[in-house]
Simulated assay, not measured.
Amino acid sequence: MAKSQQTFSKSEKEKKRLKKREDKRKKMEARKLEKEENGSEGIPMAYVDHNGNLTDTPPDPAMKVKVKAKNIVLGVPTKEESDEDPFDPIRTGKVSFYDSSKGFGFIIDTETNEKHFTHVSGIIDEIIENDKVTFELEKGQRGMNAVRVKKV
C-alpha cells in the first residue's frame, strides 16, 4: 500500500493560504460596501501650500516660487573673517582644583565657564588653587585639556 504524498505540514500550509485569501477577499468587499454607504472615494488628497502647510485644496500656481539652478550653491558656505576670533588660542581662567602630589587639576574658563582638565606635563609655571592663569586648549582622550598653563 502506497503512502500519501500529502504530509501534515503541507496540508496545514494549504489551509492557512486559503484562509488568508478568503480574509483578503472579505476585507475588499467590506471596503466596497463602506465606500457605497458613505459615498467616500477612499483616502482624501492632501496638498502642501507655498508655506509648507497641509491643506485640502490644491495650491495656487501663481504663488509658486521659481528657483534658478545657477542660484543653488552646493557645499559649505565660505566663512567671513571677523576682527575678533571667538576661538582665540590663548584663553584665561581660574584654577578650581589642583593636586600637586598627583599632578593634575581643573581650570574653569572665564569666558565659557567650562571646566578643563590639566596635567602636570602641560603646566609651565607652578600653580595652586584660585590662581588666575592663561592656557591653550588641546584635544585629549576625554575632551579638551588645558595645556601650556601659565600664571597671570
Rank of each mutant, 00 (worst) to 15 (best):
T7V: 07
S9P: 00
K10V: 02
K10Q: 15
S11Q: 13
E12R: 13
K13C: 02
E14H: 08
K16Y: 08
K16H: 14
R17I: 07
L18N: 07
K26V: 14
K27G: 02
A30M: 15
K32H: 13
L33D: 10
E34P: 00
K35G: 15
G42E: 04
I43E: 07
P44F: 12
P44K: 07
Y47S: 03
Y47D: 02
V48R: 15
H50F: 09
N51Y: 12
P59S: 05
P59Q: 07
D60N: 15
P61K: 14
M63S: 11
M63E: 15
V65M: 12
K68T: 03
K68G: 14
A69T: 02
A69Q: 13
K70C: 01
N71C: 01
G75N: 01
V76Y: 00
P77M: 03
S82Q: 08
D83M: 10
E84V: 15
D85C: 03
R91P: 01
K94D: 06
V95Q: 04
F97Q: 04
D99S: 14
D99F: 07
D99R: 10
S100F: 12
S100C: 02
S101V: 08
K102M: 08
K102C: 05
F104A: 03
F106E: 07
T110M: 09
N113T: 08
H116G: 01
F117I: 09
T118F: 09
V120A: 10
V120N: 10
V120F: 13
D125M: 01
E126Q: 15
N130I: 00
K132Q: 08
T134V: 10
E136A: 05
E138N: 13
K139T: 07
G140A: 10
G143K: 13
M144E: 11
M144C: 00
N145Q: 15
N145F: 04
N145L: 14
R148P: 00
V149S: 04
